[in-house]
Design a binder for these strands. Structure first.
Lengths: 226, 226
DNA sequence: GCGCGCAATATTGTGAACAATTTAAAGCGC
DNA sequence: GCGCTTTAAATTGTTCACAATATTGCGCGC
């Protein structure tokens, strides 16, 4: 009765860190010292190191040699590239979901949207952010292409990071009904509308961000306090 | 004078293994025992383990817990998914290359194609296979979107694996002129032709493969010898 | 008091020994 | 000779100690 191949400690640690990032409990740029994590997770540094290299490969943490691991803090250019990539991928995702989704899949989508609504009603902002991301990951998995799905599993947590970096002062997360309307269009097999709604949805999220001016790395610390 | 941040041993090892796979020196399914690699690379098992986890994240090797690392052997479904993903990404890549490429970029593309021709003339089949893959990775890098580029860096070595698994008995690699004609269309800024040629090119490569029948994992060993 | 260099401390990187698990082989009953 | 259990070898997984590097704090000269 264990269909999943028994996740290793390392995987579990990586997932818990990812969760913390998705729920905005770990802000961008924070240092992830191995010793601290080791005692927090009650494991040896070795496993922490493994988890950190995995997360680095996913782009969620940045590894500076001999200096340690830090939660990634994507540039505005990264953010624009990310949304461009997501528009490309998720339009395709919607198309294949319409082509392939079983009734069980549609039930899962409905169930997920219910969870989102509940979190919203409970005013659980952290859960809302995480669930919003996971909606897109679920769609990608139903889409059936494992390379697209794998990439979406990386891009969604990164999107959470980007939102926590560049969001305008506390917009109340993505509007609820956009996910619902996408699912409805999928259920109607209305490909044109579904892809259009998805692209608009992603555009809305991106437009909420302040990505316009200079890059973070271009901040002029001399003028900053003049 | 060191613009690149001094690649670590682990990165170097991973790259050398990737090269070996791209040049069909490491066939799919081969076991990568840590001790053997350690003495081959003259380093401790620790670094080998790191390199293997990195390669596993890239999908080039598969890690079975307590059993070791093996060169991945993608299923036919994996292969179809991969080409579908590449068509999606690389059409976009061609568009942004046309929009962004500088003259220096175009020179790099020309130079790369020259190297491909030389390898072909020298009958260096291994080099041809590797360079063919690297042409697409170079295009993606010029395209400028780092997420697309990163994914292409993973998908190209995987494509080499797939070719070595499912290629019809020694077709002479991809026809040379297809890369050239794509670059020419890019130089003319002829977006429609360039994307069409790219999609056709990928379709040609996929069509050369024998992906039709059942999946490897679906083989019924009971009926097999009945 | 201020900048510079040096020492102390903390953190990451590496290697080697040990434990756990799997795989291969030998032993044994039938 | 065949299949099963038990034993030995090989391999992976983990811990720990040490080396290398970076960061911080201190003192010294000016």
């Amino acid at each position: 009765m264990s269909p999943s191949p028994a996740k290793s400690d390392v995987t579990l640690i990586a997932e818990r860190i990812t969760n913390a990032v998705m729920e905005h409990r770990l802000p961008p740029g924070v240092k992830l010292a191995e010793e601290r994590l080791a005692e927090a997770f009650k494991v040896s540094r070795t496993k922490i190191r493994h988890a950190l290299t995995v997360l680095a490969k996913e782009g969620l943490v940045t590894l500076y040699p001999n200096r340690g691991a830090f939660v990634a803090s994507p540039s505005t250019q990264d953010a624009r590239d990310l949304f461009a990539t997501r528009r490309l991928l998720e339009a395709e995702v919607v198309r294949s979901v319409i082509a392939r989704a079983t009734k069980a899949d549609l039930r899962k989508l409905r169930a997920h949207i219910t969870k989102e609504s509940e979190a919203r009603l409970a005013n659980d902002r952290r859960a809302v952010i995480k669930l919003s991301g996971e909606f897109h990951m679920l769609l990608a998995r139903i889409g059936g292409n494992r390379y697209i799905s794998k990439l979406m599993d990386e891009l969604c947590p990164l999107t959470c990071l980007i939102i926590s970096l560049y969001d305008s002062p506390h917009t109340p997360a993505c509007p609820e009904d956009e996910h619902i309307r996408i699912v409805e269009a999928i259920e109607r097999q209305d490909e044109a509308t579904a892809t259009r709604l998805m692209l608009e949805h992603l555009q809305h999220v991106e437009n909420e961000l302040k990505l316009s001016p200079q890059d973070k790395v271009d901040i002029d610390w001399d003028r900053m306090f003049a």
